[in-house]
Design a protein around this nucleic acid. Structure first.
Lengths: 248, 248
DNA sequence: CCGTAAATTTCGCCA
DNA sequence: TGGCGAAGTTTACGG
């Protein structure tokens, strides 16, 4: 495709805030928080209607380079090269894409107002505990969620156990790491500063990494197995899902 | 576009491991580590040559749904709906895209063997200190990089200061947070366990968050201002890399 | 705006 | 393969 024709097409598409996809042979440069250079190769560039820019190579989940929404996009042709420059400020960053060849351009105004719902998040685990505190243990009573601690941090679930002892619960939707345990221990210290008594500490997660177990023993952290999936079942959302997705 | 024609096109493209882009009206379902439902809307689906799948809405950096490389992709038409199913195992996850309409399909084999180079990373900061330890302070001598600690963790740079005192340096390419300071303090404790003496602790970063300053004072953590950009400059003077950086 | 933490984080390194 | 930590992390939700 002629580069001048490509430039016109892209310019029109951007003015109309169309979803724009450019396929071609390009080099990519980035300068901002870091710097990067991507040599000449065939790849796909997407410019979305919010003026975010993504550079995708033929493999991998992540874009190699990008610019977030509301970037300022400039187009020009220089020395038979189509240059797309996407700038943002704060932090000041510039993404420069140099197309040596443009194979194909697609652009279209896309309409997408659909709801996106995600289940089996850490938030669902918290809601399950609040809905049925006995899944932690019999007699557990939540006092507060997202309790703010003095210097910094938020306790996921703060409550009292059946013997009236203050209890700090940290939730993780994946196996807990040593870092997660340290975070929980910091919360324990925060509660101790505020109340003058050392609370129980419970990590509620699907599992615990080996290295974290050591840290748990040292700091008297208890483990309660709780998975995101189980939490969703407790919340009774499973039915809403499996009419769409076959359960096996 | 006829869905049967679309299916044929996509099937051929996948067999040939072409970069495939499908634009149309779709619903998206995900079931695996979590679950999600995305209602009917116009969006762009990319299937890369490594069989990774990305679902992009008209705005935002992130794909709303995806499947990583090497997913198993099945196509079928059911009730006048084109269904693309991408499965992976370990963890078991399935992404289901239901196209009610397909507006456009692009597919092409893309060739991209280019090098990707990133500068001004945390790794560059470490290399800069090893190349010129005086940027930490006069007389500083690195002993070890990425020193492994007993229970867990790696010290970025481990060394001795001009008075012979053990020194632990934690690097951050961005302003240090209270979590970063706590991580550093854990490393200090690890060194104390191993050597029986409490080392100096230095956080080397462009800056420090307000809340982190409190944590630094409590734990006697020192701050040394070092930016990724400055580090690259130092490396450039020593190794002639500056022809890549700052050339605009 | 900063601060805090989640995320289907992903990715890369290394044992 | 699993643990460990960085990332131009991004995104969301507070104050």
């Amino acid at each position: 495709m002629e580069l001048s024709e490509a430039l016109d097409k892209i310019r029109r598409a951007l003015i109309n805030r169309e979803f724009t996809i450019i396929v071609g042979l390009s080099e990519v440069f980035y300068e901002g928080r870091a710097s990067s250079i991507l040599g000449l190769g065939e790849r796909v560039i997407m410019i979305k209607s919010d003026y975010s820019v993504l550079v995708h190579r033929p493999t991998g989940y992540e874009p190699t380079n990008w610019q977030p929404p509301n970037s300022k996009i400039d187009l020009k042709i220089d020395d038979d090269i189509l240059i797309i420059e996407a700038r943002r400020t704060n932090p000041s960053e510039v993404l420069t894409i140099k197309f040596h060849k443009v194979y194909n351009i697609f652009s279209q105004k896309l309409n997408d107002d659909a709801d996106f719902s995600m289940y089996a998040t850490e938030e669902d685990m918290k809601r399950a505990i609040l809905a049925d505190p006995s899944i932690i243990e019999a007699g557990f009573k939540p006092i507060e969620e997202e309790k703010k601690l003095k210097p910094s941090g938020f306790i996921d679930v703060f409550g009292i156990d059946s013997s009236g002892r203050l209890t700090v619960i940290e939730l993780k939707r994946r196996n807990a790491t040593v870092e997660d345990i340290r975070q929980l221990v910091e919360y324990v210290k925060g509660v101790e500063r505020e109340y003058g008594v050392r609370p129980r500490a419970i990590i509620a997660a699907p599992g615990v990494q080996r290295s974290a177990i050591r840290e748990m023993k040292i700091n008297n952290v208890e483990f309660k197995c709780l998975t995101p999936r189980k939490s969703v079942e407790i919340l009774g959302k499973k039915h809403g899902l499996d009419k769409y997705v076959g359960s096996e």
